[in-house]
């Protein structure tokens, strides 16, 4: 009776609408987040991730209301990320009904924040989101670096070392996005996923690049991911969550059917 690998649809939400960017730039509208979350819940998604990509502070209130609405109707785990910078941000999201929060650039600016957050709220609700880009050249040993600001700003931090450090600081889970693959539909960066999954003792969610169902299987089997996250293949009706699960099941991956 093994634990099932999780399939997590991701809602990138801007000003109260689900959107999906290609390489974080080109945005397509994919609907009302509450309706989209309910649809995935009914389809049997294992969790939902909600990433608030609204840049302005005014968007905060909208986000909290949307999270409240989702949490009152969707009874599966909900992770909320985007703009989480203070303990108060975390408290507000948990109070609104989030089960976990994703911390991204605030961890880079102030790594101690992850420590404080984990000791205050427990590691189980602290997900550190890592945006990594390959920086090694052809023929060199593989190397990935952490980028912030939607992949525009290099930090000089080595992705593997960073993942280890964040886990040591109390992250209960790593949400790993390949900035090279995100929105490209060519599959996860499997070498990156494997390197991070082997380096840490906590679950790793693979993200960035899913274009077909085999990519999900590869993320688990080759990348060693504990969960796979995808957005556009589900949003634009190419595949449903049950189709993804049936496919993974046939390929010998334990899923919750």
């Amino acid at each position: 009776m093994p634990l099932a690998k999780r399939i997590i649809p991701c809602l990138d939400v801007d000003k109260g609408r689900v959107v999906k960017g290609v390489q974080f730039v080109d945005i397509r509208d994919a609907g009302d987040p509450v309706e989209v979350a309910k649809k995935y819940n009914e389809q049997g998604a294992d969790e939902i991730t909600f990433l608030d990509i609204t840049a302005s502070h005014e968007g905060r209130e909208t986000t909290i209301h949307t999270v409240e609405k989702i949490a009152s109707q969707v009874f599966i785990p909900l992770t909320v990320g985007g703009g989480i910078r203070t303990l108060n941000d975390i408290r507000m999201m948990l109070n609104a009904g989030a089960d976990k929060v994703g911390i991204n650039s605030a961890a880079v600016t102030n790594p101690e924040f992850v420590k404080e957050a984990a000791s205050k709220f427990g590691s189980q609700c602290i997900v550190v989101a890592i945006d990594a880009k390959k920086v090694s050249q052809e023929g060199e040993p593989l190397k990935w670096e952490i980028f912030t600001h939607g992949g525009r700003k290099p930090t000089g931090l080595d992705a593997i070392e960073w993942a280890k450090r964040m886990t040591a600081y109390g992250a209960g889970e790593i949400l790993l996005t390949s900035m090279d693959q995100d929105g490209m539909k060519n599959g996860f960066d499997l070498a990156l996923t494997r390197a991070i999954s082997d380096a840490v003792s906590v679950p790793v969610i693979a993200s960035g690049g899913v274009g077909n169902l085999q990519h999900l299987v590869d993320g688990v089997k080759q990348g060693g991911a504990d969960a796979v996250l995808a957005a556009s293949i589900f949003h634009f009706g190419e595949f449903t969550v049950p189709e993804a699960k049936e496919y993974m099941d046939k390929q010998g991956v334990e899923v919750r059917l």
Binding site: L3, A4, Q124, V202, G224, G252
Partner: peptide
């Protein structure tokens, strides 16, 4: 080892997700 697929990973902690 993780029995959820044939790659037989080591088990992560926390035990997180849907189990029977």
């Amino acid at each position: 080892r993780d029995e959820s697929c044939d790659s037989m990973e080591r088990l992560k902690v926390p035990h997180m997700g849907w189990n029977q």
